[in-house]
Measured scan of single mutants.
Amino acid sequence: RKESAFKSMLKQAAPPIELDAVWEDIRERFVKEPAFEDITLESERKRIFKDFMHVLEHEC
């Protein structure tokens, strides 16, 4: 699924995404990734990013 691929892309980011990361600041790192391009709505990208950050916070 496209959403899973997007989350995997975020999870495998190098360097890892920090807990205090803001979408607008890290977005540039992913613009050339196929998983990024597959999610065409920016609002959807932000939503998935927020979900990812929520999970990340609870893993720590």
Rank of each mutant, 00 (worst) to 15 (best):
A35K: 04
L41M: 09
C60E: 13
M53W: 02
E59I: 03
F49L: 02
R47Q: 14
R1C: 15
F36G: 01
H54W: 10
D20R: 09
I39Y: 03
D38K: 11
D20I: 04
V31Q: 13
A21K: 04
S4Y: 15
Q12C: 07
D51H: 07
L56N: 12
E44G: 03
L56Y: 09
D51N: 14
K11G: 09
V22H: 13
K7T: 09
F6G: 01
D25H: 14
L56S: 10
E44L: 04
R47A: 12
A14E: 11
P16D: 06
R47I: 10
R1P: 15
S43K: 12
S8H: 11
R29L: 07
E28C: 11
S43E: 10
E33I: 06
L19Y: 11
A14V: 12
E28K: 15
K11W: 11
A13G: 04
S4I: 13
E28V: 11
A13E: 01
E3M: 03
I39M: 07
R29C: 04
F30P: 02
I39G: 01
I48M: 14
R47W: 03
K2Y: 01
V55P: 12
V22N: 08
V55Q: 09
I17E: 02
I17P: 03
L41K: 13
K50M: 09
E3I: 07
K11P: 00
A21F: 04
E28M: 14
T40I: 12
R47S: 12
E59L: 05
R1N: 04
L10E: 00
V55E: 13
K46F: 07
A13T: 11
A21W: 04
R27D: 01
R29S: 04
V31W: 09
R47N: 09
D51V: 07
V31P: 00
D38F: 14
H54K: 15
F30E: 01
R47T: 08
I17M: 04
L19N: 10
H54M: 13
R1H: 15
D20Y: 07
M53L: 13
D20V: 05
P34E: 11
D51Q: 13
D38Y: 06
R27V: 03
F36I: 01
I39D: 02
A14F: 11
K2M: 08
V31M: 10
K46Y: 09
P15R: 03
F36L: 02
D38T: 07
A13P: 00
R29T: 07
A21M: 08
S8C: 15
L19R: 14
F49C: 01
F36K: 01
F30Y: 04
H54E: 14
K46P: 00
L56A: 11
A35G: 05
I48E: 03
Q12P: 00
R27A: 05
H58S: 13
A21P: 02
W23G: 01
S43F: 09
F49P: 01
T40K: 14
F30C: 02
H54G: 14
E28S: 12
R45W: 01
I39P: 01
F6V: 01
K46V: 12
D51K: 08
C60T: 08
I39V: 11
Q12K: 08
A35V: 08
D25M: 06
A35L: 02
V55M: 10
K46S: 09
E59D: 12
A13W: 03
P34R: 14
L41C: 10
K2C: 01
L19C: 10
K11F: 05
T40F: 05
A13Q: 04
R45Y: 00
E3P: 01
R1F: 10
R27Y: 00
M9T: 02
R29P: 02
A35D: 03
L19I: 12
E44P: 02
A35N: 03
D38P: 05
S8N: 15
L10G: 01
A21D: 15
I17D: 00
D51G: 08
E44N: 09
K32H: 07
F49Y: 08
K32R: 12
M53V: 09
S8Q: 14
I39C: 04
D51C: 08
W23I: 00
E24Q: 05
F49M: 03
